[in-house]
Simulated scan of single mutants.
Amino acid sequence: MTIEAFERTLELAVLLREEMERRLAADGLTPARAQVLRELGGRGPLQQRELAATLEVSARNITGLVDGLAATGFVTREPHPDDRRATLVTLTARGTAAVRAMADGRAEAAAALFAGLAPQRLAAYTADLDVLLGNLRKA
């Protein structure tokens, strides 16, 4: 029974990832670029080094991500108001709309995924997931 649950969990993870990538691709985004946008949406303008540290990627990686987002109109690089040597990565109107659309998309996907599941079963499922996540974090 354990292996069956594990296999279904893997299948769910794959299907969720594919759905997320499909939705992001429709907006011209990758998962990595979307992560940058979500971070900026939650925290506001940040320096690239702050983004790199938060997302645990290299400076070179974040430069490529920000370059791509800037070229497609999701972010701009603005002068830092207190440090003229620094720049801030800032969401544009398109970037802000994309962050909002991603949040709406997550809510829609969650509603579709859990449709028909009684509130008590959803609560139990969430509690079980907390146990599973705890097990993985300890490993």
Score class of each variant (00 low, 15 high):
residue 1 M to R: 08
residue 2 T to H: 04
residue 4 E to W: 05
residue 4 E to N: 12
residue 5 A to P: 01
residue 10 L to W: 13
residue 10 L to A: 15
residue 15 L to T: 15
residue 16 L to I: 11
residue 16 L to T: 12
residue 20 M to H: 08
residue 21 E to A: 15
residue 22 R to T: 12
residue 26 A to G: 12
residue 26 A to L: 03
residue 26 A to C: 01
residue 27 D to Y: 12
residue 27 D to I: 01
residue 28 G to M: 05
residue 30 T to M: 01
residue 35 Q to G: 10
residue 37 L to W: 02
residue 37 L to D: 00
residue 37 L to E: 03
residue 39 E to S: 10
residue 41 G to W: 04
residue 42 G to P: 03
residue 42 G to S: 06
residue 44 G to E: 00
residue 46 L to F: 03
residue 49 R to L: 04
residue 49 R to Q: 10
residue 49 R to F: 15
residue 50 E to H: 13
residue 51 L to P: 10
residue 51 L to W: 01
residue 52 A to P: 04
residue 53 A to N: 08
residue 54 T to M: 08
residue 56 E to G: 14
residue 57 V to Q: 04
residue 59 A to L: 05
residue 59 A to C: 00
residue 62 I to C: 02
residue 63 T to A: 14
residue 63 T to Y: 10
residue 65 L to W: 07
residue 66 V to Q: 00
residue 68 G to K: 07
residue 70 A to F: 06
residue 72 T to L: 07
residue 73 G to M: 07
residue 76 T to C: 00
residue 81 P to A: 13
residue 81 P to M: 11
residue 83 D to H: 15
residue 83 D to F: 15
residue 84 R to F: 15
residue 85 R to V: 08
residue 85 R to F: 13
residue 86 A to P: 03
residue 89 V to I: 09
residue 92 T to G: 02
residue 97 A to S: 11
residue 99 V to Q: 00
residue 101 A to E: 01
residue 103 A to W: 02
residue 105 G to T: 05
residue 106 R to Y: 08
residue 107 A to N: 04
residue 107 A to T: 05
residue 108 E to Y: 02
residue 108 E to D: 15
residue 109 A to D: 07
residue 112 A to N: 05
residue 114 F to W: 15
residue 114 F to A: 14
residue 116 G to P: 14
residue 116 G to F: 11
residue 118 A to D: 14
residue 119 P to E: 10
residue 121 R to G: 03
residue 123 A to T: 13
residue 124 A to E: 12
residue 124 A to Q: 12
residue 125 Y to D: 08
residue 125 Y to M: 12
residue 131 V to G: 06
residue 134 G to H: 10
residue 135 N to V: 12
residue 135 N to P: 02
residue 138 K to C: 04
